[in-house]
Amino acid sequence: MLAFLATTLVAYILYLILTMFSGSFGLWSLGELIAGAVLSLIAGAVAFRVAFAKERAGEANIFRIFNPVRFIIFLVYLIGPFFFSMAKSNFDVAYRVITGKIRPGIVRISPGLKTDLGITLLANSITLTPGTLSVDVDEKNGDLYVHWINVKNPEPSPAEVCGSFPDWVRRIAE
């Protein structure tokens, strides 16, 4: 029941953002408000089992992502270290495009994350940051196989490949 309500609420907020500035009733027109309520109820009924699927054993609390502290940490992470390393990664790619110096390879890292959400977040962060691209994931223990464009060490620690990201992701998603 709580999962259904949460999914409906998120769908309704998204609908309201999408139709902002549409009318005279505040920022929205009355028709949009009613249509959004009906549509988000339907979306919530259809999608809540997918949105809050039972994750693996050892899962603490599936509603942990609604904790506002995690939202704030996520925003800080996005604007601070994530954006910085994304900028760095682009100059890295530019350097490698121009000079052609590459030393590629696929390495394995064990970040030690347990939840699906955390692994997804880390894999996407790795793809967008310097010289690394996540290729595959070991679903049993959460190990990531990472294509590294400039292999310095065939058996790296997570910190060598992706810096402080596992710690940030642990604070946000676990």
Partner: peptide, 11 residues
């Protein structure tokens, strides 16, 4: 397979 790869753990 990745070309010129120095290491391939997935293999």
């Amino acid at each position: 397979k990745p070309k010129y790869a120095v290491v391939d753990k997935l293999e």
